[in-house]
Design a protein around this nucleic acid. Structure first.
Length: 119
RNA sequence: UCAGAUGGCCGGGUGACCGCGGGUCUCGCAAGAGGUUCGAGGAAAGUCCGGGCUCCACGGAAAAACGGUGCCGGAUAACGUCCGGCGGGGGCGACCCCAGGGAUAGCGCCACAGAAAUGACACCGCCUAAGACCCUAAAGGUCCGGCAAGGUUGAAAUGGUGCGGUAAGAGCGCACCGCGUUCCUGGCAACAGGAGCGGCUAGGCAAGCCCCACCGGGAGCAAGACCAAAUAGGGACGGCACGUAGGCUUUUUCGGCCAGCCGUCCGGGUCGGUCGCGUGAGGUGUGGGGUAACCCGCAUCCCAGAGGAAUGGUCACCCCUUCAGCAAUGAAGGACAGAACCCGGCUUAUAGGCCAUCUGACAUU
RNA sequence: CGGAGCGUAGCUCAGCCUGGUAGAGCAUUAGCUUUGGGAGCUAAGGGCCGUUGGUUCGAAUCCAGCCGCUCCGA
């Protein structure tokens, strides 16, 4: 994801804080959606540090997401990973587990919401 | 062995996989794909100095104002930097620290204390020799005076110590030290040493104002150069409208100028783009000069560069640190920090480690 | 990129230029006043002057280096 509007829409969706990351997700809008495709974005604010630290945080998140999301991600959804303060110092396996648990929790909540909607 | 001093260097290593930015080659109409190569630092930081580069101003320049520098010599493109000396201070020593010109150009300040804080002074004191007086046998007392040794204060008191000298004293005289000055010797010089003279007249503060010498024109890569949309506006040429409507020429007539529409061309500027932009006060090796900073010759290499964004991630083994453990081993961690026009310095941050030279103490031979 | 200014008591500021004693208001504490509180009056406590060096006999003050903050110009 590149556009600011996409990030804002995801921020209004489901939020889940876990360890060194914040996960935000929502369904991809109809106009942008392709069957089976999920979209992902990364955010690192100035709280993380200078440009080097921010970029490193985003790179680590990108590396971790490329391992986790092909297994657990759902098509037709947008995901935003926000780096938190300890993201650069966090061990890589811990980062992976953070994203995994955040994803599972978010999906559970998503299913519950969908159930209510249908009922 | 312990404790130090100085100078220099490194700032994790190797391999595998997956990525990112620039250049280049191939394929492709293009989007892009693939190959190949390069891709952070000693401080890239703070922006405290100096320079290159670019534009502006200017007759070479000089002066005023303002700011800066401040022992001497050298290095350098230049510097407030560096090197070597000198002087002062600290340390047993290796060595370290110093904004270190001028206080007889002038102004100003020196709290409290103290008699007195600078055209020095006389509180406690010291002395009665000479002069006058009282009493007189003498001693003594008073006046007129002389003195600054001793005491007290303070950061600092017109130099210090000793001897002579004296009524008591005083550079009053002498010796040594300090200070000033003249000459001689050594040194490029700062300065050092020696001799003579002055007798002390010259307290401290210039990181108070100031004086003297030297330096500085101003701005900064968002500098600056080039290419160049749409729209609005400007100019030139041609055509249309053609004597009606508008403005100016004080008013009216005449006349003149401006103003309308269309087309072509031109130039300026905005959005945007390109260059500036890395062959350089360059790196490495080597030979030479110099005590050194540094300089010269030869060979060789091309070595980041963007839009603010790239220069990384993961794993394995090794290295180091901490913790646990008898050990095997296990766990946790790996400094300060990230180019943006460039270079020379300064300053500040920095886990840990390596090398060289030197000093002191102790022990052994 | 270039320049200017400010850090002093819990808070807001003087004092710095021209160096020797850090002070004011609010706040705090105690007492008086009031039936009690507020207001008022009186008194007290509270500061290594941002930090590290230097100059000086002596530094909040002068000088330099850092740290933090604010403002201005391009």
């Amino acid at each position: 994801m590149k556009k600011r509007a996409d990030f804002l829409r995801a921020a209004r969706g489901i939020r889940r804080v876990e360890g060194a990351v914040t996960l935000e997700t929502c369904p991809t809008p109809e106009a942008e959606a392709l069957p089976g495709r999920l979209r992902i974005g990364f955010t690192a604010s100035k709280k993380i540090g200078n440009a080097v630290a921010r970029n490193r945080a985003k790179r680590r998140l990108r590396a971790a997401a490329s391992q986790v999301l092909p297994l657990l991600g759902r098509g037709g959804h947008d995901y935003v990973l926000v780096a938190r303060g300890t993201c650069v110092a966090r061990p890589f396996p811990a980062l992976l587990s953070d994203i995994t648990t955040a994803l599972k929790a978010a999906h559970k909540k998503l299913d519950a919401n969908a159930g209510e909607g249908h009922a």
